[in-house]
């Protein structure tokens, strides 16, 4: 016979059991969420560390920590993952993948200034070119961009149903050879992480062609996502290489980042140039080197004794830096500063 107390015990027992089970289930759910988001954050931090190491040292590396991520996207400079996002400190061009990533850095050098960025791309990434107009100019454009593209990716060409890819060196030697067969639209079945770059005189590709990026042979214009895609203007091989790997968003980010670094570095260099030229005069260290020629006027900056004036040489370099502050083609201005700095170096001032 069940007593009233036994019924009371059963009811209270069931209530407590439900309460405890609910509490532990909720706690386990919350804890597993926290633990997995913590793990994801750790993986993203580890990736950032690797990218920073590659950026600072210039040594290539690899990273495999994104395995198990449900979502992984990159909107430069933000990396977005399952439970959050992180802004990467170093200029990075990431092609997101949960598999193994290769990291390499590339720099554009101007003597007094260099701009470096990091490529992070999946193992087996292919960049295939298709030449609509297989002219020396098209091949030269591809060759110039290749110099700034990562070494560990695979490069090749795509024509008709055939897509062949291999090492960078092999593709460069292929580009140096005679023009190939007439263009056939690329319609091969392509593996994941393949980007097809069509080099074509605009308005674009012949019907039936597909490409991730259509690059105009001459005008510094590219169309993203095919002939009807968004237009992006580029200047020089560095910007083309960035466009090839990361698209227009990456190009805008790299341009903005580079412009900021150039501005800051130029400001430091201007102050430093002024300081050095003043101190050289104050410390009576006027000449950089003795003018080697018996005709002093043949030297860049000379006094009556045929000795070069360091302060004048530095002033000329300072003037070239001024050009960076004016609106216009930043690459042209940077090349001008590189030339002026090269002169300073060749005269023994640096």
């Amino acid at each position: 016979m069940i007593s009233a107390f036994d019924i009371f015990r059963i009811v209270i027992g069931v209530i407590v059991f439900i309460f405890v089970i609910t509490f532990f289930l909720r706690f386990a759910d919350m804890y597993s969420g926290t633990a997995s988001s913590g793990k994801a954050m750790e993986a993203v931090n580890a990736f950032e560390d690797t990218a920073q190491e590659v950026y600072a040292s210039g040594n290539p590396s690899s990273f495999s920590g994104f395995q198990g991520f449900r979502t992984l996207a990159y909107d430069p400079p933000k990396i977005m993952y399952d439970s959050g996002q992180k802004t990467l400190a170093v200029p990075t061009l990431l092609v997101p993948s949960t598999g193994k990533l290769y990291l390499e850095s590339r720099c554009s050098e101007f003597g007094w200034f260099s701009f470096c960025w990091v490529y992070a791309f999946p193992e087996g990434m292919r960049i295939l070119f298709t030449f609509v107009d297989d002219s020396p100019a098209s091949r030269q454009l591809a060759r110039q961009a290749l110099y700034y593209l990562p070494d560990s990716a695979q490069y090749g060409f795509c024509s008709s149903g055939e897509a062949r890819a291999g090492g960078k060196a092999d593709f460069i030697s292929f580009l140096s050879g005679p023009p190939g067969a007439p263009h056939q639209p690329c319609n091969a079945t392509l593996p994941q992480y393949t980007r097809v770059i069509a080099i074509a005189p605009l308005p674009g590709l012949p019907p039936g062609s597909a490409a991730d990026l259509v690059v105009d042979t001459g005008a510094g214009l590219a169309l993203e996502g095919g002939p009807d895609g968004a237009a992006a203007n580029f200047t020089g091989p560095v910007e083309l290489a960035v466009l090839v790997t990361g698209g227009k968003k990456a190009l805008d980010y790299i341009k903005q980042r580079m412009s900021k670094e150039v501005t800051v570095s130029a400001r430091i260099m201007m102050d430093r140039t002024r300081l050095v030229s003043q101190k050289m005069v104050a410390l009576n260290r006027q000449p950089c080197v003795e003018c080697a020629t018996p005709f002093p006027e043949a030297c860049g900056w000379t006094d009556s004794g045929g000795r070069q004036h360091a302060s004048a040489a530095y002033e000329a370099f300072g003037d070239s830096l001024d050009a960076l502050a004016r609106p216009g083609d930043i690459w042209r201005a940077l090349n001008g500063t590189a030339q002026a700095y090269g002169l300073l170096e060749s005269e023994g001032c640096e």
Binding site: D49, Q52, E53, A56, S57, W112, F113, S265, E345
Partner: peptide
Amino acid sequence: LFIAEGILSSGALNSPQ
């Protein structure tokens, strides 16, 4: 460590020689 590496590799502070 990154800041230290950044200073050591920065073109703005290093001697191009």
